Amino acid sequence: MDEEIDQKVVLVTGGTQGIGLGIAHEFLSKNYYVIICARHEPKENIFENYEKSSMFIQCDISSSESRENLIETIKKNIGRIDVLVNNAGVAPPERKDILEASEEDFEYVIKINLQGPYFLTQQLVNFMIELRLKGNIENYHPSIITISSISAFTSSTSRGEYCISKAGLSMMTKLYADRLAEYDFPVYEIQPGIIKTPMTNGVKSKYDKLIREGILPIKRWGDPKDIGKAAVTLAEGLIPYATGQVLNLDGGFHIRRL
C-alpha cells in the first residue's frame, strides 16, 4: 500500500455525473475518502478542493478484467474499503417496444446494470471479510448500498431491459443481505424516482408534465443530493437494526393512490 488512509473509504461506481456524483459529494462532505470509478474519465475537475480525499479509477464494471484491476488498485493504493455504492447504470442505446427489442441491447444493459454489480459486490465483500478477520481496522463496520430505480417495480415496455436489470438488483440486495448478516454487514437498496440527471435530460418535458399533473405526491423533481444524503445516512449506521431494506426516494411515487 502506497499510503495509509485513516478515513472511512467509499467506492461509488458511475460516480462522474448524475446520481453518482451527487452521492460522492455528500460522502466527501462527511469526511469520507471517496473513490469513484467509471468507464470514462471526467471531462472536468469534479472534486475541486477535495483532491487529497478522492481518487478516480477507470473501470468498466461489465468486464471481469476491469473489475479485478479496480480491486487490486484499491488494495494497493488505499488498503481498505468501508462502503460500496453500486450506482453505475445505463439505459438501452435505443428505446424499443418489448416486441422489437434486440438481444444485443438486452445484453449490454444487463452486463452493466446487473452482472457487473453482482460480481463487483462479491469481490469487494470478500475483501471486506478479509479486512474484518485481520482486525487491523478499529470499529470496522462496512456496508453495501445499491442504487436501483422505481423501474424495479414499474413497467416501461419501451425499455424492458432496464426494468429487468433494476428488478434483478432488488433480488441481489436481498441475497447479499441474507448471506452477509452473519458478518454484520448491512445491505441496502435505494430506489430513486424521477431525478434530474443527464440520463433524464431527454425526457424532461415529459416528466415536467407528469409532475404538474400529480404523478408524485411531492410535486418536484428529485435531485442527486437527495440520494446522496440517504446513502450517507445508511452508511453511517443510523438505521442499525435493518438489512435488505428498500428506501424509496421517489417523491411518494410508490404509494398506491385513488
Rank of each mutant, 00 (worst) to 15 (best):
M1W: 07
Q7P: 00
V10K: 01
V12R: 08
T13N: 07
G14F: 07
G14A: 06
G14W: 05
T16P: 07
G18K: 01
G18A: 02
I19K: 04
G20T: 06
G22C: 02
F27V: 05
L28R: 04
S29T: 03
K30A: 05
Y32C: 00
Y33R: 04
I35P: 04
C37F: 15
H40Y: 15
H40S: 15
E41N: 07
P42M: 10
P42T: 05
E44C: 14
N45Q: 06
E48H: 12
E48T: 14
N49H: 12
Y50T: 00
K52V: 02
S53E: 05
S53F: 05
M55D: 07
F56T: 02
I57P: 05
I57S: 10
Q58G: 06
C59D: 04
D60C: 00
I61N: 01
S62C: 08
S63K: 10
S64G: 02
R67L: 05
N69L: 03
L70F: 13
I71Y: 15
T73Q: 09
K76Q: 13
N77Q: 11
I78V: 14
I81K: 02
V83T: 12
V85S: 07
N86H: 08
N86Y: 06
V90P: 11
P93C: 12
I98K: 02
E100K: 10
D105W: 07
D105I: 04
Y108N: 05
Y108L: 03
N113Y: 10
Q115R: 15
F119L: 03
Q122H: 15
N126Y: 13
F127L: 09
E130I: 02
R132G: 14
R132M: 15
L133G: 05
K134H: 14
G135S: 06
G135T: 09
N136H: 13
I137R: 06
E138W: 02
Y140V: 02
H141E: 11
P142F: 06
I145R: 06
I147F: 13
S149R: 03
S156M: 06
S156K: 10
I164G: 08
K174C: 15
A177N: 13
D178G: 10
E182Y: 07
E182G: 08
D184R: 09
F185W: 01
F185I: 14
Q191K: 11
P192C: 07
P192F: 10
G193P: 09
I195N: 13
K196A: 14
P198F: 13
T200Y: 11
K204V: 05
K206L: 10
L210C: 03
G214T: 12
L216N: 03
R220P: 05
D223C: 15
D223F: 15
D226S: 09
I227M: 10
G228A: 14
A230W: 03
A231H: 11
V232Q: 00
G237I: 02
T243Y: 08
G244D: 11
Q245C: 07
Q245T: 09
L247F: 15
L247R: 13
G251L: 01
I255L: 14
I255R: 09
